[in-house]
């Protein structure tokens, strides 16, 4: 599975990263090198092997659906790059 520059541009779009042509060329070589390393996995027969999602094979623990956090609205809003009247601002998304 060899990558093309157009693949790199598509991946960058999916990852929401802006890249220029020069960066796309550089990434093409680097990502291809990493995928070459990863391709060693193909040699292994994994028929019937259970995928391992958790090192200790534990199930996700669930908590009761009750309020556990205190109100920290002002503290959290203070971290936002842009806010007004208790709301976080972004560029207009609805015409």
């Amino acid at each position: 599975m060899s990558l093309k520059t157009s693949d790199v541009e598509k991946i960058a779009h999916l990852a929401q990263l802006s890249i220029n042509d020069e960066e796309a060329e550089g990434l093409l070589g680097e990502l291809s090198g990493i995928l070459g390393l990863v391709a060693q996995m193909e040699q292994v027969d994994t028929t019937g092997v259970e995928p391992m999602a958790h090192p200790l094979h534990m199930n996700q623990r669930l908590r009761d659906d009750v309020v556990s956090e205190t109100d920290q609205r002002d503290k959290l809003l203070a971290l936002a790059p842009s806010s007004e009247a208790g709301l976080i601002l972004v560029p207009q998304v609805i015409e």
Partner: peptide
């Protein structure tokens, strides 16, 4: 680089060949 490798490995059509296979070898 790592975000892009991961995005590619999880993208439609590649999940079984990469992420699923890796989780099996992890076992």
């Amino acid at each position: 680089r790592r975000i892009m490798i991961g995005t590619y490995a999880l993208s439609a059509g590649y999940y079984d060949a990469y992420y699923l296979k890796a989780q099996q070898i992890r076992h």
